[in-house]
Each structure stands twice: as structure tokens, then as C-alpha cells.
Design a protein around this nucleic acid. Structure first.
Lengths: 238, 238
DNA sequence: TAGAGAAATTTTGTTCACAATCTTCATTAT
DNA sequence: ATAATGAAGATTGTGAACAAAATTTCTCTA
């Protein structure tokens, strides 16, 4: 059985039928984004059925949705696995983030309210708390929420949806290519960005944001993992 | 029956089972984007089943996919209808297009090859041909292909996928808010953009593109259609 | 012992029947 | 006449059974 019961947690009453597609989708998504399910893990419909006490039909719907969100890969006749973006895709995803986040940040600097800044400051504080108590999982989530909040403030839901997708995929990328020990991005880039926003300094905010995202890519080691495991070249002594 | 046989065309051999999800998805998508199916049209699973000679399961999958692409709206327990974006959504979609197309165009100007320009010129010529023989439907498709080709040249598949979705939705917006007679955008903005690209004039290309998209929004009448058809206010004599 | 090939098992894909829900239309009461 | 009620019909949602495909296990041979 590919999926261990423990890694999907929270079956609520340990009973059945608490779970609709919505809930199941969320649970699997969380498990992936919090890196309890590693990229490449097989997601068997039957196993998930038992774990969530739902019929395969419902599981299937949840998996297709995760597939559309590029969090899960469905290979025809061969089932679903947790997606593992290639280095090329990873680069494109970060590139896309820079494009979208620059635009979204400019709008945010323009039209943010007092309370928007307050929300952002709270998020940054929460991030610091996580780092303090070494809660990597909560921190990863919050770091995403921070970027997403800026998009929300910008007011364009279409773009926000795109960014949300990109941020999810970033979690996968970090799971795959993040340096093991590295407490990456732990410095407070985020607070500086909030400062620039609250001072209405658009150019500074953008510069900081782009540099921040560049740092993120730089903190990954995307060279080591081969595109496709080419055993020949590995053993040919090169 | 909500969906007329004729509007979905090309049942190939008039026989059965020619159609997998892939094909059915494409057919319905085409019908919507070519405006043979108006926004709001009910898409009953049973009718589509009969039309395509496929089981409801297959139809269902096609519809969910169209739903993820925001071309079709699925209302729980109430079935699928052709999506009809609100004016607010329409504005956000064009805003998103401007963000993405500016970025994509800059990359395109930087890295395009000779043959890329050739492809673009061909597309522009094909557009002109359509206008000449008054083939509005083919023209709508080509106009989208032009923008999409620029994204492809830019080389980022993630962003290209986003833009593809936005372009599809633009067709719906034009169906909803396009001025009836208006041969909108018929002037050759596109050729000018190609010229700027081939001259490696990034700033000019971007300026033209943004203006082009602004023109498109301007050519719509989004004021007239009420958010939700409020019959009372219509007949109260105001 | 290694490898090819064939059975057995597992897993995904599809169909169909039934349940749940919504819509329509006729009936009744105000 | 209008609105509320309720049955009948149509449509969507769900689960279980079956079919098709992939994976594993086993067997036999070189």
C-alpha cells in the first residue's frame, strides 16, 4: 500500500463519511504541501478510499482536481502520483512568480489600506514565531500566505488564483530541491517588503521582492538531480 | 433539450464511439469559443451523451475539465452552463492579460528567431484574409493564436498556459459584451506589433500591445448589461 | 542462476442502476 | 389573480459491479 494512514491524518471521528470531495482534496493537498507526502509517492485510489472512508468516485474527483492544480500527476492507466516538477519547470514557475508578483505588488503599494498592512505585519510576526520554535511546516505555509495576501490586496482574483497555484507548486519544488539543513529565507525579507509597502515606495518594494525570489531560487540545488535518471551515464564513469 | 444537435457539429461518422473525453472536450470548447453556444446555455449531460454517443461519465469528465478552464460553470446539483463572466471578471481578465502579455512580449523581443517572426507574419496575413472574406469565426480564433504564439516564443510554458486560459475567456467576453456590428480590432495593430518585435524595439512593442488591449476593452459595452438581470428595475420605468 | 514468458493479482477505467435533488406544473387557499 | 403547496418528471450525484490494463509473482528453460 503506497499511502500510509498516518501521513494523511485527521480522519476526524475515525469513523466514516465525514469526508466529501472538498475535504478530501484539502487533506491530500495539505499533506503534499506540508511535505508529509513526498513527490513521486503513489496515490492509489483504493488506499485513499479506505483511509477517508469514501467511494472511489469521490477520491477520483479529488485526484483530478489536484491534477488540474499541478500538485498531482495522473498517468493514464497507471494512476496518480505526487507531482515532481523538473528543474526546467521549477525555473519557469519562479519566472512566472516574478512576473505576477511584481505586478501584484505594484497594485498593492498603490491601493492598500491601513488594515491591509496590519494583516501583513501579523503574517510576518507569525512567521518569526514559527522560526523561533522551529516549526518548519507552519512556516512554509505562512510564507506562502504572505505572498498570497499581497495578491489579494491587489484586488485581481484571476491573477490571485494563478499565484496561488504557483505558490503550491513552489512547495513541491522546495521539497525536491531545497537544501536539507538550510533554514532558507529565514532572514526577514518579508518585513522589509512590508515596510516598503507601508511607505508607498513602489520601486523599492518591487526591487526587494524580485531579489527575494531570486534568493529563493539560489537557495535550491537544482543541478544535482538529473532530468531523468539516466543510469547509463551515471555508471559509465563520467 | 438545451443543446441543439446542429450547434455541436462534426459527429464524424454520424456513428458512435468516435469520441473520447479529449475529442468531446475539444468539440464543446470549440463550439463555445466560436460562439455557436451562447453564454448561459444549459449543457445537460443526457443531451450531450446522445449527441456524442458517449456515456454520461465521459461527458461529465469533459464538463469538469471545461469547468476548470472557466469556460463552463458547474452549479452543484443544477448542472453545467456555458460560463458568462461578469463585467468585473471581464475587467480582471483583461488586466491579467496586460500583466502577462507585457512580460511575455519583452521576452519575445529579446529571444525571438527569424522563423518566429515568419510564423507571426503568417498569422497576421491569415487574419487579414479572414477579414477580407468576412469570416468572423476563424478570425476570432486566429487573433487568439497570435497572442498565444508570442507567449510560446517567450518560452515559458507555465505562463503560456495561463494566457491560453485568459484568451479563451476573452472569447466569452466578446460574445457577451462585443458590440453587435463592430468589426472590432480590425485595424492592423498586430502587424505593427510584429514590426516592433522584428526591430527589437521592446518598449515600442510593449506600448503597442498595451494600447491594443486597451482598445479591445474599450470596444466592448460593459455598462449596459446589468450584473444580475433585475427585472424589477427594468420595468419600474427608470 | 538469470531470463523469458505466463498466470495471478492489483489497479485503473467504464458502465449502469439507484438515490438525492432540483424543476415544473397543476391544485388549492387566500 | 396571486401565492403557497405538493406531486410528477427530469437531472445530477454516488456507489457497486464489471472490463481493461498494468504490475507482480511464479514457473520453466537455457
Amino acid at each position: 500500500m503506497a499511502v500510509a494512514q498516518e501521513s494523511l491524518i485527521r480522519p476526524s471521528k475515525s469513523g466514516k463519511k465525514n469526508s466529501s470531495e472538498e475535504v478530501i482534496h484539502q487533506q491530500i493537498s495539505d499533506a503534499i504541501l506540508e511535505q508529509r507526502l513526498a513527490p513521486g509517492t503513489k496515490l492509489t485510489e483504493e488506499s485513499l478510499s479506505e483511509i477517508f472512508g469514501a467511494s472511489r468516485t469521490v477520491i477520483r474527483r479529488a485526484l483530478t482536481r489536484l491534477n488540474y492544480e499541478n500538485i498531482v500527476e495522473i498517468r493514464p492507466n497507471r494512476g496518480a502520483i505526487v507531482a515532481s516538477p523538473s528543474t526546467a519547470q521549477a525555473r519557469q514557475i519562479f519566472e512566472a512568480r516574478q512576473i505576477i508578483e511584481e505586478a501584484v505588488l505594484r497594485a498593492c503599494v498603490q491601493k492598500h489600506s491601513e488594515s491591509d498592512v496590519a494583516v501583513l505585519k501579523n503574517l510576518v510576526q507569525a512567521e518569526k514565531d514559527c522560526i523561533a520554535r522551529n516549526d518548519r511546516i507552519a512556516w512554509i505555509r505562512l510564507t506562502g500566505d504572505f505572498h498570497l495576501e499581497i495578491a489579494r490586496i491587489s484586488g485581481n482574483e484571476v491573477i490571485t488564483k494563478f499565484l496561488k497555484e504557483l505558490i503550491s507548486q513552489t512547495s513541491l519544488i522546495i521539497a525536491l530541491y531545497g537544501k536539507a539543513g538550510g533554514s532558507l529565507c529565514s532572514n526577514d525579507d518579508h518585513s522589509e517588503i512590508v515596510k516598503a509597502i507601508s511607505e508607498h515606495d513602489e520601486q523599492k518594494a518591487v526591487t526587494l521582492m524580485l531579489a527575494h525570489l531570486d534568493e529563493c531560487i539560489a537557495s535550491l540545488n537544482m543541478e544535482e538531480k538529473a532530468e531523468t535518471q539516466d543510469l547509463k551515464s551515471i555508471f559509465s564513469g563520467e
